[in-house]
Design a protein around this nucleic acid. Sequence first.
DNA 1: TCAATATATGAACATTTATTCATATGTTAT
DNA 2: ATAACATATGAATAAATGTTCATATATTGA
Lengths: 119, 119
Amino acid sequence: MNRDLAPCCQEPEVHLEAVERVRSMLPPDEHLYDLAELFKLFGDSTRLKILYALLEGELCVCDLAGLMAVTQSAVSHQLRVLKNSKLVKFRREGKTIYYSLADDHVVSILSQGMEHIEE
Amino acid sequence: MNRDLAPCCQEPEVHLEAVERVRSMLPPDEHLYDLAELFKLFGDSTRLKILYALLEGELCVCDLAGLMAVTQSAVSHQLRVLKNSKLVKFRREGKTIYYSLADDHVVSILSQGMEHIEE
DNA sequence: TCAATATATGAACATTTATTCATATGTTAT
DNA sequence: ATAACATATGAATAAATGTTCATATATTGA
């Protein structure tokens, strides 16, 4: 890693001030990495559909699979991803497992994104 | 919630009501697909860093490359992605090309995500 | 116990995606 | 026109990711 690399290719002085200001305000790399991981979760239409479906309330795996015309296995795999990331939670009732949203932020993130789309 | 009901897989009638309600409220597939594409843009730490850097104002490609210790080529490729998606815009000044955010929504989407991370 | 049902999971496969390298394009100054 | 510089881009490579298939686990009821 070249931390003290010249800001601008051959004439460092030029944008040095702006670059240093930006550098000091950038979130730490670790945060950026986590944030990317979060957005990645929303970056798949299967997972998005699951999240949107769960906005209305809890649903079981079969409900979700039927709703979105996707294999039970595919839904299950994606639910695991969402579960591991603490975006959904679940409760068991006999053989059935009901999933629901675990985090209010999900709603606001979805809304912000959709607002942008609907322009 | 009145979930004192039987499993769904083999007896579709059971959660049928809930499923139908959800189905009627789901955004159209095309929207979901577009939304996934949007979030995918935020789902890479290189692109995230570019967007965060541009929050402070316009920067040229070399500024960005230097700032984030990444190849000029890599930055350029990602800038093209962001440009094609209308998240950044650019202006030319001689040999230098300055990039800046093209959309206010970028800020709010980033904020929402970061809020979630910082818990 | 065994069969049936709901869900989870591992492995394989196909697809997407980000980076690198080499080179091309476009701009300016000489 | 040529050299130098800033940026863009195509091809290749490697890594990550989503789905499918087959099978495993867990729960219930006979």
